[in-house]
């Protein structure tokens, strides 16, 4: 199966390991992975700040980049959600709406793709530790992917999963919210870090680099002994 990877700008620039783990994992599961080099960003930073026209420029670029792909897979629930939103945002431009719909139809978040398309729940990963999973908002509420990551994690050998209290509350990232409303964001991320501690986990797993940079950045600043891992890296642990 041929898969086109949308790696996301955050992973391309900051979390390169997560990108490599995603490639290795998909290949190990029998996919042929290609990386369209002209890809940039899904446009969410501009879109969520109200700069819809500017976001549309990057959206149209992304539609062109992935036009030939069979499947577009991305290790981010939030960016996958944004790609799925394209037809809605471009609804007044008939030609683009149709092209956006075609992209939306073949776009999958990584864990969703593994469980729903490949039909695999045990990827043969091994990782020792006690972990908890952060349910990111866009992935669960807007994309509707709730079970797939938990199913995959439940089969990781050596990994004990603990429930995260108040997992439905946002971590306080919210893109530009994190720098525009820093005092509020701080309270939110502090409560999230506290919940992770209450869960009794030494690893925090998530499927969105934005949330993980936020929670992880706060954990590091506070010097807490909690490791933050993207689910792609967990599933690629052997």
């Amino acid at each position: 199966m041929k898969v086109s990877l949308f790696v996301t700008c955050l992973i391309d620039i900051f979390q390169t390991d997560v990108g490599m783990d995603t490639v290795e994992l998909l290949e190990r599961l029998g996919c042929e992975v290609e990386f369209p080099e002209k890809q940039t960003c899904c446009g969410q930073p501009a879109y969520n700040s109200g700069y819809v026209d500017k976001a549309k420029d990057s959206m149209k670029h992304m539609i062109r980049v992935f036009e030939q792909a069979d499947y577009v897979v991305t290790p981010s629930g939030s960016c996958a959600t944004m790609l799925k939103e394209y037809p809605h945002i471009l609804k007044d431009e008939t030609e683009w709406e149709a092209r956006a719909q075609a992209l939306a139809n073949k776009t999958y978040e990584l864990t969703q793709f593994i469980v729903e398309v490949l039909g695999i729940e045990d990827v043969g990963a091994k990782l020792k530790g006690t972990a908890t999973y952060h349910t990111s908002c866009h992935m669960t509420r807007l994309l509707g992917v709730k079970e797939a990551p938990l199913k995959l994690l439940s089969h990781v050998e050596g990994l004990e999963m603990k429930p995260l209290p108040h997992n439905y509350n946002c971590c306080g990232f919210g893109g530009t919210f994190s720098v525009k409303m820093t005092p509020i964001s701080e309270q939110m991320v502090d409560e999230k870090v506290q919940s992770v501690e209450e869960a009794g986990a030494d690893i925090l797993i998530g499927a969105d680099c934005g949330c993980l940079m936020n929670i992880g950045g706060r954990i590091d600043r506070k010097g807490k002994p909690i490791k933050v891992m993207h689910i792609a890296s967990v599933l690629n642990s052997r």
Binding site: E37, T40, A46, D57, S58, H61
Partner: peptide, 10 residues
């Protein structure tokens, strides 16, 4: 503006 320039053109 910078974002738009940087993401609409590879």
């Amino acid at each position: 503006k910078a974002f738009s320039l940087g993401t609409a053109s590879p």
